[in-house]
Amino acid sequence: MLVQADSISKDYPAGRGREVITVLNDITLQVGEGEFVSIVGPSGSGKSTLLYCLGGLERVSAGTVSLTGIDLTQLRAAAIAKLRRDQVGFIFQSCNLIPALDVRENVELQARLAGREVSKREIDAVLLDVGLEGLHEARPERLSGGQQQRVAVARALLSRPRILFADEPTGALDAVAGAGVMGLLRRVADGRRSVVVVTHDPEAAARTDRVLVLRGGQLHRELIRPSARQVFEAVERAA
């Protein structure tokens, strides 16, 4: 399994003199190689927190998380960062690109951080792949939301991650642009890389192989290749 979470919980301090807030409670899940998994649920159900815990951006309060067979709970922050840099790609709803860098520089950033040589031909190919050919020198503020997400996908593709985590990648996009991004993520998964995506959009979730429905920080249901209608009803019930 590429991702293995065993009985993980996540608490946050609630404030002075008050008890903690439990955001995730006893969740166990696995993600295999080449799997395309989505996490859905009502607002505040812990979707993004779960994604960050799985990707090593947040530490769990209890339980264990393994990424590519390595137990994250036993690693120091620097080692987790290195693992994320070498094995993981992240795409956020916004907050994806460095404003001062152009498209080409943003795309090669993660690979550069890993100390990997990146040729112009590789960059051209990956930008062509995500439909951004000719925009090498454009700065992020000149791009639409959908184009910015494509740059983030291109960056993730170029860094050759074994698993890609995406937090609401279509949240700020219109239906057409969102479908385009989900199509790209599907192609990533088809290339034997795993993709875990958090979304509130039933249409987007219906494009994935497996849908995990969260409710109150717990894994409520698991749907295999559901329709958008089934995802919608599952989330409605969870709410």
């Binding site: 951006l57 922050a77 960062a81 994320r84 070498d86 460095i98 950033l109 960056r155």
Partner: peptide, 16 residues
């Protein structure tokens, strides 16, 4: 904070 978040997200260590 924004830039640090992006760098952190793509695996840059704190030293970077």
């Amino acid at each position: 904070r924004y830039e640090s978040s992006v760098l952190h997200g793509i695996g840059a260590p704190r030293a970077t």
